[in-house]
Structure formats: structure tokens, C-alpha cells
Design a protein around this nucleic acid. Structure first.
Lengths: 117, 117
DNA sequence: ATCGCGCATGCCTCGACAGGTATATGCCGA
DNA sequence: TCGGCATATACCTGTCGAGGCATGCGCGAT
């Protein structure tokens, strides 16, 4: 049975969400964690990683607040944390006008000679 | 009057969207470009950048497909390109279940003792 | 108490950048 | 044609992060 959250206490080398997401291996880890929480060993098996590499990537993801670990005996079970994803969403939101505008223009173009503006 | 698109022809050192977005300066550039297209000099002024730095960041953004430039005499006017943002959106979409689930649980918790599940 | 397992961490090396300076290039105006 | 402007690019330097290896550390089982 899980016991305690493994907090990233203090403000030690906080990592930006963007920096954490810049690495493909870390994005792969997140993809797997989206399915369900995984222990480090499971991630090592499924993603064919060296164990130290996995631990380091997970540490980075932790410092970015993207994941958190629960302690279960010798195992650390990592799970996603929603908050940074919400921030990403918020960052992306203003850019959404870009493609919705593009789609609008496309739409206008399709309905071309019927009405203008 | 603008003349030509400044294509990133060939597959020379394509940069991942994530890599391009990992840099804060580049994100600042995108924020400014969201307002309207800007020439390099305008970006240099508004963001207090060295001119070579601006050109280099813009080159990276170009290789990531996030911006494109139109040539106007000696000036290069950079504007946003929607496509990578749509891809970002697509990447983020599956994670949306995360916080919608969290909100659902919160909601359920608020309506707590009224109905279960 | 001891061993083995699961994981984290320290050290090293290397390649990838960011910032700065200097310089090359295309284009306009006089 | 010439000078100057706007931008790109080459070069250098310092920094940071990823991968690989070895090792430390906590916990459970025997």
C-alpha cells in the first residue's frame, strides 16, 4: 500500500515545463504515465531505458511538477500531475485564434461568392 | 510591398517544435508576433535583443516551422505559422482528460453527500 | 544481521546551444 | 556608383544537459 508523497520540498532547481518537455524521452515517459501510474522499473522495461537515465528524467519531470512519486516499499510509483498541463493549455489558448482564424478564412473562402464578410 | 516567402527549403536541420519553444526569448518573440507580423529590427527594439541574437532565434523558429518571413526590401517581416500550434494542441489533447477528471472529482466532491457516483 | 532488490545520485565526457563580436551580403537612396 | 541600412552568418566561449558507468542507500525477506 502506498504511503507517502515524495515532495519536491523547497525551491531547489525548479525546472520549467518547457525545458522538461523538450526531451523526447521525457515526453515518451509522460505518454506511458498517461495510461496509468508506473514504477521506475516498469518504465525502464517499457521504454527500453537504462535505469539511471529513467531516474534522472523522472527527477527532471518532478522538478517541473509534471509528475509526482508515491513510495511503495523499495518502489517509487510515478504518476502525472495535471497542473503544468493546465498551464500549457493556458499558454496555448491565445494562439488558438491563429488557426481558428485560418479555418474561418478557409470557411469564408469555401462559401466564397455567396456573401462577403 | 512584400515579395516572396523565404522558404526553409530542403530538410536542413529541422528543429522540433519543443526544442524551439524551450527558450524563453523565443517564446517572447512568438508573443510579440501574435499581435502582428514584425520586422527583425522591430523585435530587436521591443524585446531589447542584440540583432544577431534575434536573427538566430528567428532562424530556429523558422526551422521549427513556427514562423515564416516575407521579404520587403532589406527587411524581413516575420509572422506566425499556425501549423505547429495545431500539433501542440493535438499533443496536449489526450492529457486533457487529466484535468477534466480532476475537475469532475472536485465537482463530485462538492456535491458530496447528495449522490454517490 | 545480512543479502538482494529497486532506485537515486555522483562523476565523467561529449555534443548542443545561447550570447557576444566581427563580418559578409543584398538592397535602397543620393 | 557608392554609402549606408537591415539582416544573416561565421567564429569563439561558456554553460548546460544527456548518456554511460559505478556506487550509495533504504527496505523487505530469509
Amino acid at each position: 500500500m502506498p504511503r507517502q508523497v515524495y515532495a519536491e520540498t523547497g525551491t531547489f532547481a525548479v525546472v520549467s515545463t518547457w525545458t522538461a518537455l523538450a526531451d523526447p524521452t521525457r515526453r515518451a515517459i509522460l505518454d506511458v504515465l498517461r495510461e496509468r501510474p508506473h514504477a521506475v522499473g516498469e518504465l525502464v522495461d517499457r521504454l527500453d531505458l537504462a535505469q539511471p537515465a529513467a531516474s534522472k528524467h523522472l527527477a527532471t519531470l518532478r522538478r517541473a511538477g509534471l509528475v509526482h512519486a508515491t513510495v511503495d516499499a523499495q518502489r517509487r510509483v510515478y504518476a502525472l500531475d495535471p497542473r503544468p498541463f493546465v498551464e500549457l493549455e493556458a499558454w496555448l489558448a491565445p494562439y488558438r485564434a491563429l488557426w481558428s482564424d485560418a479555418l474561418d478564412r478557409l470557411d469564408a473562402h469555401l462559401h466564397d461568392h455567396q456573401e462577403d464578410r
